[in-house]
Amino acid sequence: MLQIKNLHARLKDGREILKGIDLTVEAGEVHAIMGPNGSGKSTLAAVLAGRDGYEVTEGSVTYQGRDLLAMPADERAREGVFLAFQYPVEIPGVNNMYFLRAALNAGRRHRGEPELDAGQFLRAVRGKLKLLEISEDLMQRAVNVGFSGGEKKRNEIFQMAMLEPRLAILDETDSGLDIDALRLVARGVNGLRAPDRAIVLITHYQRLLDHIEPDRVHVLQDGRLVQSGDKSLAAELERTGYGAVDAA
């Protein structure tokens, strides 16, 4: 599904953030990437999603056999790459439901599938709203405008559920969530685990992994993956902190 090889990336100001990442994620797997603040977690997510402002200086990323880095951001999305934002963006005046339908139909057009009309779309929405305990009222509001932190994060997972990506990257989706919201988000993500879908969880804390069990856990430190293991690595980190990994 996803092969990252020796990936180096820097900011426009020349500061190198990713210093040689190697990672392979297969379909059906859930990988967690953990690391302290400033280790490059969000940069990795941004580079994979194709955000402007980063320059890849070395290495390659292959997604479903294609050169991911050669595709513009919107094409990556239509090809099934989804990023759940750490800070979901507000778009005043744009109805949440309308936004989601436009996104969904952009993907369907890309795949040569018929677009969903308003009625079909509404039926699809209703089922998934329940899963995340999102009220229909929230869908009629402008995208993320006036949403609480928890509502924004749930809305991200809801979008993910609707868009049914092949590769989902969740950037600190757990940050700022209370335990109830965390459970809902985890329920949503677990519901999306599928043999043909890969999920990459980017997180600072282990607590998300209490609810979403990863197949692999990686530790990102200063732009490199310094350690990989199974889910027990996460528990160990929780106990010893990132400093211990650093020393190891």
């Binding site: 999603a49 194709g50 955000r51 402007d52 402002g53 513009p72 951001a73 919107d74 990556r76 999305a77 239509r78 989804f82 990023l83 934002f85 979901p88 963006v89 507000e90 778009i91 005043p92 005046g93 744009v94 936004f99 989601l100 436009a102 996104a103 969904l104 952009a106 993907g107 890309h110 402008a142 995208v143 979008q159 868009l163």
Partner: peptide, 29 residues
């Protein structure tokens, strides 16, 4: 904002469609 543009594009909307969506939202009232 670049954030708004990227958010829309990450959901699959082309650059033009993203701009149009944001501008229409701005004019909604």
């Amino acid at each position: 904002s670049e954030d708004q543009m990227f958010y829309c594009r990450q959901r699959g909307l082309s650059q033009e469609d993203a701009l149009s969506l944001i501008v229409n939202g701005f004019c909604k009232e």
